[in-house]
């Protein structure tokens, strides 16, 4: 398989084929396959340790895989000749712990990557950064440091920061898990707006209500394999596998 195939939008934007991943002796992913079309919203749910976060980290090459293939826009992610930095310009990621740069203000956090990595013009980037922060409803907080913002506000800055790079795919790794219930809503609204604008999103989440409303497709993982998947309506109404039923029974 060549590293760069001519990719067209009728092919999956993210194609995960039979991926195996292990940290030393601990097997984390054991034969995971997944396809995401452009503009789709995919929610991955499952118990802790089932490999969901690792799967996301394999997509933007933060974590190497042992076997199988992951392609983003036709490019084989784990091809040793691939420039990882080029890939990461197309795939944005938002983390559970926000991971904002504490020594920079909100607007500086958003501006840093386009200026340093994409070498774009500072005034343009600044204008776009202000627009993005306005979009995530953080007008007035541009010059605050992360330490002065609440968890929900920090997470929205993190989303704006990833969007500043104009990615084609956004990965969300349990982004609301560290927030209290009132602030969860403000972040979910932001993600929902993003999805409605047509951004391809892969979310690892525990927010079942959100998943049911926004997802195009649901995946349930357990112990490194995808146990079941389907459209949200079918998935929540008629789970087929007993493990899925047990998990949903505990959560819902």
């Amino acid at each position: 398989m060549t590293a760069t195939q001519a990719w067209t939008t009728d092919q999956p934007i993210v194609r995960i084929a039979d991926v195996y991943q292990a940290f030393g002796a601990v097997e984390v992913l054991m034969g995971v396959s997944l396809n995401v079309m452009k503009g789709e919203v995919i929610c991955i749910i499952g118990p802790s340790g089932s490999g969901k976060s690792t799967l996301l980290r394999c997509i933007n090459a933060l974590v190497p895989i042992n076997k199988g293939s992951i392609q983003v826009e036709g490019q084989e992610v784990h091809d040793p000749k691939l420039d990882k930095l080029e890939l990461r310009k197309k795939v944005g990621m938002v983390f559970q712990q926000y991971n904002l740069f504490p020594h920079k203000t909100a607007v500086q956090n958003v501006m840093m990557a386009p200026i340093t990595v994409l070498k774009q013009d500072k005034t343009e980037v600044e204008a776009r950064a202000y627009a993005l922060l306005k979009k995530v409803r953080l007008e007035g907080k541009e010059h605050s440091y992360p330490g002065e913002l609440s968890g929900g506000q920090q997470q929205r800055v993190a989303i704006a920061r990833s969007l500043a790079m104009n990615p084609d795919v956004m990965l969300f790794d349990e982004v609301t898990a560290a927030l209290d219930p009132e602030t969860v809503k403000e972040v979910l609204v932001t993600i929902r707006e993003l999805a409605e604008e047509g951004m391809t999103c892969l979310l690892v989440t525990h927010e079942m209500g959100f998943a049911r409303e926004v997802a195009d497709h649901m995946y349930f993982t357990d112990r490194g394999v995808i146990v079941e998947h389907g459209s949200p309506k079918e998935f929540f109404a008629n789970p087929k596998d007993p493990r899925t039923k047990e998990f949903l029974g505990q959560i819902l």
Binding site: G92, M93, Q97, N99, F101, A113, V117, M165
Partner: peptide, 15 residues
């Protein structure tokens, strides 16, 4: 420095 700082800057394509 928490490893999250390295992860987030890598995912923003910083070398």
């Amino acid at each position: 420095i928490p490893s999250g700082q390295w992860e987030s800057s890598e995912s923003l394509a910083f070398n």
